[in-house]
Design a protein around this nucleic acid. Sequence first.
DNA 1: TGGTAAGCGAGACGGTACGTCCAGTCTTTGT
DNA 2: ACAAAGACTGGACGTACCGTCTCGCTTACCA
Lengths: 207, 207, 207, 207
Amino acid sequence: MPGGCQDETSRLVFGYARAVPDPNRRSERSRAAILAATLDLLHESGYADLTVEKIAARAGVGKQTIYRWWSGRGAVVLDALVDQIGPAGPPALPDTGDLEADLRLVVRAIVAELADPRLSVTTRALTIETLTSETFAETMRDRLLRPQLDTIKERLRGRVRDDVDLDQAVELLIGPMYHRWMMRTGPLTEAYADGIVDLALAALRPH
Amino acid sequence: MPGGCQDETSRLVFGYARAVPDPNRRSERSRAAILAATLDLLHESGYADLTVEKIAARAGVGKQTIYRWWSGRGAVVLDALVDQIGPAGPPALPDTGDLEADLRLVVRAIVAELADPRLSVTTRALTIETLTSETFAETMRDRLLRPQLDTIKERLRGRVRDDVDLDQAVELLIGPMYHRWMMRTGPLTEAYADGIVDLALAALRPH
Amino acid sequence: MPGGCQDETSRLVFGYARAVPDPNRRSERSRAAILAATLDLLHESGYADLTVEKIAARAGVGKQTIYRWWSGRGAVVLDALVDQIGPAGPPALPDTGDLEADLRLVVRAIVAELADPRLSVTTRALTIETLTSETFAETMRDRLLRPQLDTIKERLRGRVRDDVDLDQAVELLIGPMYHRWMMRTGPLTEAYADGIVDLALAALRPH
Amino acid sequence: MPGGCQDETSRLVFGYARAVPDPNRRSERSRAAILAATLDLLHESGYADLTVEKIAARAGVGKQTIYRWWSGRGAVVLDALVDQIGPAGPPALPDTGDLEADLRLVVRAIVAELADPRLSVTTRALTIETLTSETFAETMRDRLLRPQLDTIKERLRGRVRDDVDLDQAVELLIGPMYHRWMMRTGPLTEAYADGIVDLALAALRPH
DNA sequence: TGGTAAGCGAGACGGTACGTCCAGTCTTTGT
DNA sequence: ACAAAGACTGGACGTACCGTCTCGCTTACCA
């Protein structure tokens, strides 16, 4: 970025310069311990019992170190999840040319994750936080959800009836699963996943 | 109930007495004040700021009166909502014979409710509680959600492809809306509602 | 007190009525446990290590119960001391007719108390608090110090040169001891106590 | 010091190295800034609000620079005071030959200092620290108090009844003032100072 | 119709967690 | 090697609520 020197230490030129901690001095050891402790506690006793104080104690860290880098437990859980799935993001959606087979794969994967209490506990936590805080909802949506939805959206592009809105199409696929998961209105099985794919494709397929 | 003498006020089981409050003596005045205060506070500052203590103070009621009749703030919000929409339940789904028109009506109504911050704040609260407590989730599902879904389910029965599972069909209609609402992935408008109905019917209609 | 009805629950008629806890409902058990724990901790590790949190933990009491009835650790220590010496106040100064003998008695008693680390730790704590907080200083002075000084003052009245200010006379007797105690400028012994009495009487005695 | 080579920067004793900072390399600029900031803050908001962190921030200095050269805020205040009154120590007690006049001068000066909130705030801080820490008390006594008391002591030597202990004599003069100042038992005025001198001399004067 | 027992308001209680501040140590980056 | 800067662990602060409890008061039911 030639000529575009961005001063890292004070980003606000106008307005009040909130003292922002220097990320270069951040302790990687503490960061990792906090995220690990968070996942541990989440698996042991769920989000309702997860407190900043317990995270700090389990991680062997001062509370301030958490508050220095995160705004609250929700933000920590989000980072813990992002850290867990790795910087590469979610596994890429394969493109075999067979749309139905590909979708079956992703939908099954999502259903499996939601059905597994150990895996879905983070999703549950993040959903609660999303419903609680508007600003968190936006972070969550942009950092985690949008990329995932966009992948599916691109896969659908050009292969569905050209009068459908792709965002609606993706939600047609995704929404029912999350609804069933949250509301516990029925079992989350592979058969269910396949049923959703069938229905969605019936709605979306050209002809 | 011949032979089965069930004392309402104290169920003695093997010597342990769990005192159950007598609903006949319940103060209707307090009940109403609590539910009204709950909705007020919910509208003023949201579920995260809603506490049993504030409800009691606003309602001019002792905390114990709340804990006597409800298990926590979630249960109070649920009752407040039920009380608000009236004992008759949600407005009956009309049956004009035109399935598409009828569905358009319900779906539009739901979208409108979710889009209105004043109305959706209770739904938001109940969803959070649903994600937090398994037992609450079941109460919520059975008392509030199931009747609503069943209404739609019955309307669909016999008018859709006979190889589709009706529960899945209902969720195909409902799930996308809730997903968009929770995750703030797009606008909740009438056009969106109609789009969902179109897609769902394309998936479900015979042929 | 005829006609002078004093409402106990709200003492402020003008200005803001600070919610004052109801002393009738106060738990005597907790009060006693707090004061005992305070003295214990004070003897174990001194005032610098005394924290409200530790008092609460040791007393098996919530922190709020301390903050409800006291303004801070200083106030608790003051009450602990008052509670310890009993509602009767300090032991009455005997009046044998022999001024010198009587004074020798009190001054020796005070010196002995200051010389004993176990007894003087409370005095030390209260003195620190007195130097720290102006309002505490006034409470301390009026509740604890003034009565003690006045006792001596009354004993001196009429028996000393009639041109001396009695307040100064008392301080002439008391001040040197406290100075030596605080500043550790010399030993606090009976001989010292007697020396002080001799000097003071030499200054005060008629002729 | 033949044979006793003492390395100033690191005293190695049986393998344990306790790094001692080299006073030659000490930054005079930082030292002065720290002492000035300390007095500023003390005057602004008192000793209870004085923290090492605030001193460092105000002085534009790292916290470590304070901890390197002082043991805590008490030691800094002590140095600040010593620095303020200058290396020459307190103004010398004049010797006019008239003992009463000379004493009146010192006692009035001390009373004036204690009565002035701006001046006495440091004395207050040092007294608190003296009561808090035994080792500080000794430093304080030897560095600040003893010289002052000894000056008076020497002035009294040979001019008072020869059966009185001079240390007690000095404290008879000094103690009452400090007591009144700390306990706020009365006004600190010139008249009071003179009264103390009168009483003390009545006790001490030969015959 | 007076006694008893419930619900009620009020709010103190033992606790847990909050988010902030500071102590005192450690580490990084100049200079 | 000292200094500035400031992140770190740890601990206490004073506050807010939790869910339980106890206190008088009012109110309904029963004897």
